[in-house]
């Protein structure tokens, strides 16, 4: 049998997904199972004691609250900034569109550590933002921005912004431009057109972008480490500390699994929502 014929005899789906399955299985699934096993194993074999201990601790709930609050705020901020940007991008033509696309995608090639340090400089008391606020007369002294939750949200939103813009942009691009026009000829004001036509039809893009940004900001480690520090713990930074500083693999595994559970449920819920909304189109 020739190579080509043999390749043809393998179901195409299996052949095409094999590299991905191998890669994910070896480098992701195996460590994950180890992590999961580690979090459920005590001195006497299987136990849920680490979870019970963790969840009965008020501090844990504070950390979970921090994690979800920051992730939600970052998602909302990227949506508020990203949706108008996606509209401008989808309306741009020619070189303007290229410039905008590059300026959205290029920052992705700058490492997160570099960006986080950059925001440290921008947000510091004599940084650009502080200076501007003083110059505008709104503040007498530059307000504390670095090492605050607000600073963290702003910095993280900047890093994750492309992941909100691009899915919305791709859905906007598929939107028939005649639909808002049809709404206009039916007597709908610009606001009514947006809320009743454009927004509902681009919801799948918002859901996808939201899922990206939320799952990335729920698990971010470097950005909070640099922009807010140790005083403020999220599940991700707690996991990192457990492994790196406290050398408590049990605690680290448990918080990691908790974080994973949250991320996975967000992704699943978003996918289900997107499918329902997407099915409407």
């Amino acid at each position: 049998m020739s190579v080509a014929a043999r390749l043809r005899s393998i179901p195409a789906g299996a052949a095409l997904t094999a590299p991905a399955i191998l890669y994910l299985g070896l480098l992701y699934l195996v460590p994950l199972v180890w992590l999961l096993a580690r979090s459920f194993s005590g001195p006497d074999g299987f136990t849920i004691e680490p979870y019970a201990a963790l969840l009965s601790d008020g501090f844990t709930w504070q950390v979970i609250g921090n994690t979800l609050r920051i992730a939600t705020l970052v998602t909302l901020l990227t949506l508020a900034v990203g949706y108008p940007a996606a509209i401008v991008l989808s309306r741009a033509r020619g070189w303007m569109q290229v410039v905008l696309l590059v300026s959205i995608i290029l920052p992705l090639s700058v490492g997160i550590v570099v960006k986080a340090f950059a925001w440290q400089i921008v947000l510091s008391r004599n940084g650009v933002v502080g200076q501007l606020l003083v110059a505008s007369g709104l503040f007498e002294h530059a307000p504390q921005l670095l090492f605050t939750e607000a600073g963290l949200v702003v910095g993280a939103a900047n890093v994750f912004l492309p992941f909100m813009i691009l899915p919305i942009y791709s859905v906007l691009n598929l939107l028939d431009p005649r639909l808002p026009e049809a709404a206009a000829t039916l007597g709908a004001s610009p606001l009514y057109r947006f809320t009743r036509v454009t927004l509902p039809l681009t919801l799948p893009g918002i859901v996808a972008g939201g899922a990206f940004v939320f799952s990335m900001s729920v698990s971010m480690y470097v950005i909070p480490s640099l922009l807010i520090g140790d005083r403020f713990q999220t599940l991700a930074t707690l996991t990192g500390r457990s492994f790196l500083f406290m050398r408590n693999e049990q605690l680290g595994s448990t918080t990691a699994v908790l974080l994973l559970a949250i991320s996975v449920s967000v992704i699943l819920a978003a996918t289900a929502l997107a499918r329902r909304l997407g099915g409407m189109r």
Binding site: D176, E181, A182, A183, V197, P200, L201, R281
Partner: peptide, 8 residues
């Protein structure tokens, strides 16, 4: 021409 009905 393509009717432009609101699909949702």
């Amino acid at each position: 021409q393509n009717y432009a009905l609101f699909p949702h």
